[in-house]
Structures are given as C-alpha cells and as structure tokens.
Design a protein around this nucleic acid. Sequence first.
RNA 1: GCGCCGGUAGCUCAGCUGGAUAGAGUAUCAGACUACGAAUCUGAGGGUCACGUGUUCGAAUCAUGUCCGGCGCGCCA
Length: 542
Amino acid sequence: MTNEELLKSAIKEALSSCGIEALDSEIAIERTRDAAHGDYASNVAMRLSRKAGKKPVDLANELIGNIHSDNIEKIEIAGPGFINFFIKKASLGSIITTIIEKGTDFGQAEPNGKKINVEFVSANPTGELHLGHTRGAALGDATANLYKKAGYDTTKEYYVNDCGNQVAHLGNSIRCRYHELFGEPCELGDDDYHGVGLIKIAQEIKDKYGDSKLVDNEETKAFFVRYGIDANLAGIKKDMADFGVVFDKFSYESDIRKGNTIEATLQELKDKGYVYEKEGATYLNTSAFCDDKDRPVIKADGCYTYFMPDICYHYNKMSRGYDLIVDMLGADHHGYINRMKSALMMKGYSKGALEVEIYQIVRVYKDGEEVKMSKRTGKAVAHRELVEWCGKDAVRYLFCERSGDTHLDFNLDLALAKSKENPVYYAQYAHARCHSLLELGKDIGIDSTGSKLSGQKESDILKQLAEFPSMILSAAEARAPYKVAGYIQKLAQTIHEYYAATKIIDRNDLDGTKARLGLIQACEIVIKDALAILGVTAPDKM
RNA sequence: GCGCCGGUAGCUCAGCUGGAUAGAGUAUCAGACUACGAAUCUGAGGGUCACGUGUUCGAAUCAUGUCCGGCGCGCCA
C-alpha cells in the first residue's frame, strides 16, 4: 500500500470516529508543491465542514486527533483548514522495494472483472491512413493500454467498412487506373479516389492478371473492389504494426451483413415500435431517446444507410459481454454519438454502455503554412510519411501529449528539423541516463530499502514514484493518456535535476551509492513502463 | 438558427468533481561540463485565466449572458 492510500484510509477512519461517513471521492490527498506544506495535504476538512456542521479548522483539529500511523512524522493544520502530513523519510523510501520487486507489474491494478472494448482507427480501406488516423491510433492504443494497466480486460478492435458506396468507388477507381495502364482513357468521377496509391495497385493487378480484367462486368467489378480492400487493409495493418499498434480483433461489415442479422435486428426494432416510414424511406425513432432527430435506416432506393449495419455491429459488440464499449472518433463524427447511444438504449442498454471519445482535428504546418489534408486528392500528409520522417516514438508521444479535446498543431518543420526539440527525447534521455548509471555501478550493488535517502530531491522522486498507481487509475478513468505524458515529463525532470545536483556514484561512499542506485533503478523501471503505455520505447542508449 | 469542442505567458498547452503565491515546455536574456551522458542543469523577465453578471469563506474551475475560432446539423460514411 502506498502512503497516499494509507493516508486516505487513515482519514476515512478518523472521519468515521468523528461520526462522519465520507465517500472515497470526497477524500482527496495531493502531493504538495511547497515543502513547507509537508509531503501530502488534504482539503477534506474544508470540503466536509458544511456536512459536519463545523468550522474547517475545528474539524481539522478533531480529525488529526484521531489519525494514527507509524509512517507519519507530524501533522499540521494550515491556512483555511488544510491538513498537512509530514511522512517519515524511511517510510517514503519503502516504495523502492515495492517497485524493484514488482518490476513492470508495479502500478498494474488487480483484475477488476470488467470487460472493455476500445474501437479505434477503423478507417475505410479505401486508401492510405492520414494524420487524423494517426491521432486516433495513438490515443486509442494508449487508452486501451491504460485500461489494461488499470485492471480491465481490454480488447483493441478495428471495424472494417468493406461494403457500400465508398468501396464501390474504390473498385471503380482501381478499374480506371487499370484501364489507363493499357492506354485506355478513363475518367475518374468526383466521388472516386484520385490518390496515386491506387495506380500501384492497378499495376500489381496488371502484373498478375495481364489484360484479363479489361472486360467490364459484375464479376470484374467485384474483383476490383475485393482486391482494393485487401490491398489497402494489408497496408493499413502494416502501417499500424510499424506504429506499434496491434489490434486484437478485426470486425468486418461484410460479416455483419451476412445471414439475416440486419433484417432480424430491424424486425426487432419494428416490434418495439421504434421504426416508421416517411416519404419512401424507413426511419428509426432515435429522438425518443437522446438524439435530436430521427435517423433513416433504409433509403428510398431500398438500400440500408450506413447506420443500420453500424447498429448491428454495436449490438454485436455488446453481445460479447463488454461492460463498456469505447469508440474513438474524429470531431466530424460527433453527431453520431447520440444516435448510436439511442440505438443501444432501444435494446435496453444504458446510455453509458457506449462512450465516444472525440478528438479534434490535427493541423499540420510546414514552412509556416498549413498543409491541408485530403484523402482524395492524394496530397494528404500520410500517416506513413509522418512516421518515416519523425520516427514512431516521437509521433506517438506528441500525439498523446495533448488531450484529444484540443486542436493539435503539429509543426512539421520542428519535428523534422531537430529531434532533440521533441519532449519525448527528454524522457528517453532520463531513462538512458538511469540505465547507464546502473551499468557503471554494477559492481557496487544496490540497496533497495530506500532507508538512506533523505535529500529533498530524493523525497520528491520517491513521492512521484509512489504516485504512479493512482495516476494510472485516474488517467484510465478519464481516458486521458496525456496525463501519463505529463507524469513522465515531471518524473524525467526531477531525475535530471537530481542527476545534475548529486554525484550518484561515489566510490568513497558505497552505502550512499547503493541507496542512490536503488532509487535510480526504481526510476528506470517506472519511466520505461509509463512510456510503454504510450507505445514509446525507452532505449538504453541513445 | 440549433448542437458539440475550444479561448489560460510571444507560441504550444496543463490545471476544470471549487482550495494555499495560476503552472510546464518552447522562445528571449544571463550563467554552469578536467563528477557518473551538456539531448542536461541553474537563474531572470513574461498573465485583465476572452468579457459581463451570479453562487460563497474562497472561482481559471460551477451557473448564466455575450464575443471569437473549429466542427457538425444528408435518404453520405
């Protein structure tokens, strides 16, 4: 148990012996900024003063009379009613033993029995991934990693839209490019894909099949569609693997459409009275739940809209026993949230069974000007290009560093020009420094008790390390990988400061050296593990 | 018009279930390697938390009204 957890339960006990029952969420423990305020502080007395019917300071006084712990050096009341805790140095140091024993399992919460599905990227297999997908991939993967670390049984999933208009246009575009290769002019429509990547695919087909696909009939149409989807999907999978993202499951719209799943689902919704016809189309009464208008599920031409199979897909996910399904979507899809939640509610699921994480657009700047991206013109800044230019680690870190709620301005010049300006190197360097110290001090050995560490910087580091497990839980709860990045930056900074101010390896002071190396080893473990959550590697040497 | 997201230092952003003097990075300026990696460290300057009103012991944080920016509002996906 970390000191934070100990304090929390001690406060809870003190409260109840004062006759106050408090929720866990009402008891906040925070690390202090100012050493004069002790190691940890709580505002619980101010927060609960109204509930207790007492002045904050009086309540605080009463509470500290009831708090007993061997780990506490002293307790003070300050300001309007803060309770400041000073922890015994030896007790702060004990976290090192825990970290070294547990290794990368430090911060790993016990399985909590909850299943979560995180669906992300899910780009249509009609072309290359672009920057928007990069953000979705970085955030989605890190979010899923966070959930795993926080004790959830987590699945990473990709939904492949391999049906419908978009893929028909894909097939047509490839067919056009193929014809061009034989000198037959072929005009691409406005809705077709103009990306040059498709020329390569057409060339592949020509190499494999010669001119045998020049005839235009239903069979060759389907062939071009299938070939295009497979080729693009293979490319996407490779791009994602190179980016460190491996999905546990791929689901296909074509599988959802197999059999009579869609018809049966629609019938079920009809039976419940949520379906009606208007002007030749069929509508779902989503506004009866949390949508602001009803949505069509069958067009007047008899085809399903994209929405209908999507509903079936989400029902399919829920039927697999998840307590929560999460969709990561770009900001242009936010209108989608309430209609899908409504559809799930029709089936009896709660509104919170689906959470949609929206991330705002990425703007790219090059030579001081914004680069507009467009999937169809072929002038997009492709995911693959970006990763080739800046490296996987830098891109993943920079895309995870900010909340998805904010627009991300990605300065390509900066990312390309000097790698050292990327904050990821700051963290990786801290790790490399730790590693190199441990190599140098290999023959000296390590004291993992932490009992000899008494400096201010050392206490700072120990408290930061102890904070790791609770940081994981709150970051997972908030689906906020950027909190991990923030944690990494602070820890790296403290490590660098410590290093600059302290001679870690001192052969005239072997006991002290062993203790410091113990601390350094704990740092190495935690910073590497934190980076791994974001999908960033921690090299031993740089 | 309606809805969602944002507006905090020159720039990019944390902080938002109300708490101590609003923080980082970067940029600018001034310093530090014959100690373990200077991809680092130390210090300085830099703020009307977009604006008004309200709630209270206390508001960047909550409510409300404006202003500005992005996105969405399709029988597209």
